[in-house]
Design a protein around this nucleic acid. Structure first.
Lengths: 148, 148
DNA sequence: GCTTGACCTAGAGCCGACTCCAGCTCCTAG
DNA sequence: CTAGGAGCTGGAGTCGGCTCTAGGTCAAGC
């Protein structure tokens, strides 16, 4: 089954520009075939490969690394150690990134909490018996920058 | 306590360039004070604020949003809803991002697994009685792009 | 008095990853 | 036969977020 660049763009979500750009950057494992009039013809394999590429890109793999990976695959069997190394390296970067984001999420959640408390403390007339959210939540010493 | 730009750079990890750039971009809540000779003088509050900024930036908040947030804080009390909205929006972006990365990590982990299997299947001389890791692991129909 | 080093400003440059443009070729339908 | 649409190429432009340069001020130390 073969697809035009437009069709591939449609089903991968990449733009036709990006597809040509990727090709030029050596991201494809085998050269994209050409049909009559020099038009690009993509196979299902190409699309599958692109799917992988998209996932790697989405997770922050830079284009040069993607190209490197494509190079290795193009070379064929025998370089699996290097492919593995590349993947592992990326894996670590991604887990690291997730870790970092999760930490950030802590502060963000804290801030959200502070503003929520602030707002539903200010709005409903305070019921006398109801235990107020314990004070100091806005700026505990351990949490920086809570003054805002 | 007051710090020079160099000292702030040192303890935040930002470059002096970045600090001046952030200032120019309106990221600071109050204008950075100036000492003799027009030199910037930072307070602990400035550093605390920067710490928050760094966390927000690290988690992918774009500078314009950061500036917006600073604007709100500068305005003072009364716009907490908007601050909350801003934070919540960011919170969602970050959780979304974590989700996406975690998904990607699936494929990456899968790939790593494939290469590991491939390698320790090829290297140690196969012991006759040992059950080989069941075949087909390299390209199950459900997992795209496993041909590489 | 000269160098060194930290700082200042305004503005240019860079990097990654596209995105868009000009000017062309085809093919198909009206 | 001509207008539209999809595709082609090479190269320029964009955007975000810094990073660096040039040219200058100032204070301290030799």
């Amino acid at each position: 089954m073969s697809l035009s660049i437009g069709q591939v763009a449609e089903r991968t979500g990449l733009s036709v520009h990006a597809l040509r750009f990727y090709e030029q950057e050596g991201v494809f494992v085998d050269p994209v075939r050409r049909g009559p009039g020099g038009r690009r013809v993509y196979s299902q394999d190409d699309v599958d490969w692109l799917t992988v590429c998209i996932i790697l890109r989405t997770s922050g793999m830079p284009l040069p690394a993607l190209r490197r990976y494509a190079d290795l695959v193009r070379e064929g069997a025998g370089n699996e150690e290097e492919r593995l190394a590349l993947m592992r390296e990326h894996q670590e970067r991604v887990t690291g990134q997730i870790g970092r984001l999760t930490q950030c999420l802590d502060l963000i959640g804290f801030k959200v909490g502070v503003y929520e408390d602030l707002l539903d403390e200010a709005r409903p007339a305070v019921e006398p018996g109801r235990p107020r959210p314990s004070d100091g939540g806005a700026a505990p010493a351990s949490t920086p920058g809570t003054s805002a």
